[in-house]
Design a binder for these strands. Structure first.
Length: 316
DNA sequence: AACTAGGCT
DNA sequence: GTATAAGCCTAGTTG
């Protein structure tokens, strides 16, 4: 209803700002440890059923970034004097895992060629060359790639985009024709989950789905089918990140670096490093993350650095 | 405790 | 006819 009456936008603005104030601006300074002068989160290794870790008291995995006002909260996370914050994240790790596990030749080829996966997807589905892909085409392709890892339907695609249901149905159909390996993989996962009552990640982390076995409530079945599709993808990404995190401290030490890990945000690690160690640290961390658990395609990473977590520049 | 809302990947 | 996109944590309200 945004724009239909002035009060709507006022309500939404109030909600945004009161969320930022109560959850972050008031809470974070109060969470500061008087001994260290820092905010210390707690991580739970079994925080999520997928294998992800969770963060609480305070949660530092949901620090704002999306809006301008929100980003100002993130600007408050700063490195100590003489140091910078270094953030390294995996690029499209979940889609790379899909390509690997589904062994889909078209998707693997796109990643091998180092292409923008959403552009490649758009080109395939719309039947045009990569350089003829418009912003709108890419946006639609991004929505379906994104929805894919959550087990989304054509209905869900239509709802999340400006596509009509008929257009979305057609889009999904073409998508699976262009990526038959992905289609086959999704069908196999559904079947496997129903047959075994569980699915596993690449590193054998298991998640059970009781409702897929016994008598079946269709709603519950659909929900668990989506969860069963997402679990190996999200869970494998979590496994790989955990392996990287195990390797990083010794890799840094071996390189004679003082930098250390501060935070993990699912596909991102934030480190604090002395300014003169920035480039070397980025190299070591990127290398360790990329090779934590090699897949049939490269795992790429992006490194950014800056004085604060909200104002970082991409490193080359 | 249940529910709504909203922050993140 | 019904429902429809995964995983979390925190704050505020209500009873």
């Amino acid at each position: 209803m945004r724009g239909k009456h002035p009060v709507v936008d006022m309500i939404l603005e109030n909600r945004e700002l009161s969320k930022l104030k109560s959850t972050y601006i008031d809470a974070l300074p109060a969470a500061m440890d008087s001994q260290t002068g820092r905010v210390h989160t707690s991580y739970s290794q079994i925080g999520a059923v997928t294998g992800r870790i969770s963060s609480s008291n305070p949660n530092l995995q949901n620090i704002p970034i999306r809006t301008e006002e929100g980003r100002r909260v993130r600007n408050g996370f700063i490195a100590e004097k003489g140091s910078v914050l270094l953030s390294v994240d995996y690029s499209q790790i979940e889609l790379r895992i899909v390509a690997h596990m589904a062994k889909d030749e078209s998707m693997l080829a796109a990643f091998r060629a180092g292409e923008d996966i959403h552009v490649t997807t758009a080109a395939a589905v719309y039947g045009v060359e990569n350089d003829a892909v418009t912003k709108e085409m890419r946006r639609h392709a991004k929505a379906i790639n994104f929805g894919l890892i959550y087990g989304m339907s054509a209905f869900g695609l239509a709802r999340s985009t400006d596509l009509t249901l008929a257009e979305a149905e057609n889009f999904v159909k073409t998508y699976f024709e262009k990526f038959p390996g992905v289609k086959k993989y999704l069908d196999e996962i559904r079947q496997l989950a129903g047959q075994q009552g569980y699915v596993e990640t690449l590193l054998n982390r298991r998640r059970y789905f009781p409702a897929l076995q016994g008598k079946i409530n269709p709603q519950m079945k659909n929900r668990e089918e989506r969860e069963a599709i997402n679990a190996p993808i999200q869970g494998t990404a979590a496994d790989i990140m955990k392996i990287a995190m195990l390797k990083i401290p010794s890799a840094l030490k071996a390189a004679g670096l003082k930098s250390r890990m501060l935070l993990q945000v699912h596909d991102e690690l934030v480190l604090e490093c002395p300014k003169d160690e920035m480039q070397k640290t980025a190299q070591v961390v990127q290398e360790t993350m990329a090779n934590a658990y090699p897949l049939s395609i490269p795992l790429e990473t992006e490194a950014k650095a800056g004085r604060s977590w909200g104002e970082m520049q991409v490193l080359k």
